[in-house]
Simulated assay, not measured.
Amino acid sequence: MYYAILAYHEEGIVESWSEEEDAALMTDLLEVNDRLVAQKSLGPAARLGSTQNAVTLRGKGPGIVIDGPFAETKEELLGFYVVDFPSIERAVEAARELRRANPTAVYEIRPISLYVPGASLPSGEGN
Rank of each mutant, 00 (worst) to 15 (best):
M1P: 03
A4D: 04
A4Q: 03
I5R: 00
L6D: 02
L6F: 00
L6V: 14
A7Y: 04
A7P: 01
A7N: 05
A7L: 03
Y8A: 02
H9T: 07
H9S: 08
H9N: 10
E10H: 07
E10I: 11
E10K: 13
E11V: 11
G12S: 10
I13A: 15
V14K: 05
V14I: 14
V14D: 02
S16L: 10
W17V: 13
E19H: 09
E19F: 10
E20D: 13
E20W: 08
E21W: 03
E21D: 12
E21C: 12
D22P: 06
D22A: 13
A23F: 05
A24C: 04
A24L: 09
L25C: 07
M26N: 14
T27S: 15
T27C: 06
L30C: 14
E31Q: 11
E31V: 08
E31T: 07
V32P: 01
V32W: 08
R35F: 13
L36F: 07
A38P: 04
Q39R: 12
Q39F: 11
K40W: 06
S41H: 06
G43S: 01
A46M: 05
R47F: 11
L48E: 02
G49R: 07
S50W: 03
S50Y: 05
T51I: 14
T51S: 08
Q52W: 02
Q52R: 11
V55R: 15
T56P: 02
T56H: 12
R58V: 09
K60F: 09
P62A: 14
P62T: 08
G63C: 08
I64F: 15
I64W: 10
I64G: 07
V65G: 12
V65T: 01
I66P: 08
I66T: 12
I66Q: 11
D67K: 10
D67Q: 12
D67M: 10
F70E: 05
A71Y: 00
E72D: 09
K74G: 06
E76N: 08
L77N: 00
L78P: 04
L78W: 04
F80T: 00
Y81H: 09
Y81N: 04
D84Q: 15
D84L: 13
F85C: 10
S87W: 05
E89L: 04
E89R: 13
A91K: 07
V92C: 04
E93T: 10
E93A: 11
A94H: 03
A95E: 01
R96F: 13
E97I: 06
L98Y: 01
R100W: 14
A101S: 04
P103V: 15
T104F: 13
Y107D: 00
Y107K: 02
Y107F: 09
R110Q: 08
R110A: 09
P111F: 06
I112S: 03
I112M: 12
L114Y: 13
L114A: 07
Y115D: 11
Y115A: 09
P117Q: 02
P117K: 04
A119S: 03
P122Q: 03
P122I: 05
S123P: 15
G124A: 04
G126W: 04
N127M: 13
N127A: 09
